[in-house]
């Protein structure tokens, strides 16, 4: 079955639904219509640009360009992870933790998938590597930022409890273990919810897209299952790495709790 190709007219007709939202905003005095229209225009421009960029990168298909684009995406995701928590580690600690977590999660899971399940030729083919890295990054970003935020806010809240243990001669890693556990748990829980609800409460977007694009539902489902497992891996790696990179910045060689490094 061939995909049904969309024309600009199809998209213009679909955009009437955004206009409908804008009318509702004016009617109910929500003052959201301007934001809504700007968001819709931004979304269209951003996606078109990405489409053209990807077509260009896929056509050239050199490992250096693919790696370069993935690195840019990783850098942007790392910056997002760093910016979200209310608390910030000194000396770019949030950036280091965020960037390391998303980079590790993305590269490990994307290369794992490319080397095992997908096996394109060559293994780093841009058409596979870039979308895969993109979806891993999105989820790793969420997991890392949740984990980092839980750790940084938790360490302030638990400061007295951690220091009471340190003062009794407990190792730093043992005194902070419950905090690490809670942070990693916070990062991983959303993907468990998504996996549990997949197919019952929601039809995952990628699977829906593939079915609309003409792939058989069973093939689409197989891809979706693969992606879910990869995402579970990426999310786990991201949440664990963000928590451990951050806690490493909050101590020193004398196993002190360096709360002074948190602003």
């Amino acid at each position: 079955m061939n995909p049904i190709l969309l024309t600009p007219t199809d998209l213009i007709i679909a955009s009437s639904l955004v206009v409908l939202d804008a009318v509702v905003s004016v009617w109910l005095g929500l003052r959201l219509h301007q934001q809504l229209l700007v968001a819709a225009v931004r979304c269209t421009i951003q996606l078109l640009l990405v489409g053209y960029l990807l077509r260009f990168v896929f056509a050239i298909d050199t490992p250096a360009l693919t790696l370069g684009l993935v690195l840019v995406m990783v850098a942007i995701a790392g910056r997002e992870v760093a910016a979200r928590p209310e608390k910030k580690l000194a000396r770019y600690g949030n950036q280091v933790a965020g960037l390391s977590a998303v980079a590790l999660a993305t590269f490990v899971t994307a290369i794992f998938a490319l080397a095992t399940a997908l096996r394109p030729h060559p293994w780093y083919a841009a058409r596979y590597a870039i979308p895969l890295a993109g979806i891993m990054l999105g989820n790793a970003l969420n997991a890392a930022s949740l984990s980092l935020d839980a750790l940084l806010s938790g360490v302030m809240r638990e400061r007295a409890a951690i220091e009471a243990q340190l003062a009794l001669g407990v190792r730093f890693r043992d005194a902070t273990k419950p905090l690490i556990r809670a942070s990693v748990r916070r990062g991983i829980l959303p993907i468990i919810n998504v996996m549990s609800a997949a197919g019952i409460v929601t039809l995952p977007g990628i699977m829906t897209g593939q079915i609309l694009a003409g792939l058989s539902p069973i093939e689409a489902v197989k891809y979706q299952i693969l992606l879910m497992f990869l995402l579970a891996g990426a999310v786990g790696i991201a949440a664990v790495s963000a928590a451990y990179f951050a806690i490493a910045r909050l101590t020193d060689d004398r196993e002190r709790l360096r709360i002074d490094r948190l602003g």
Binding site: A161, I162, E163, A164, Q165, L168, G169, A175, P178
Partner: peptide, 13 residues
């Protein structure tokens, strides 16, 4: 363990 500090408001974990 040898030089033990007890805070004015000790923590509990």
């Amino acid at each position: 363990k040898r030089v033990a500090y007890l805070a004015a408001e000790p923590g509990w974990w």
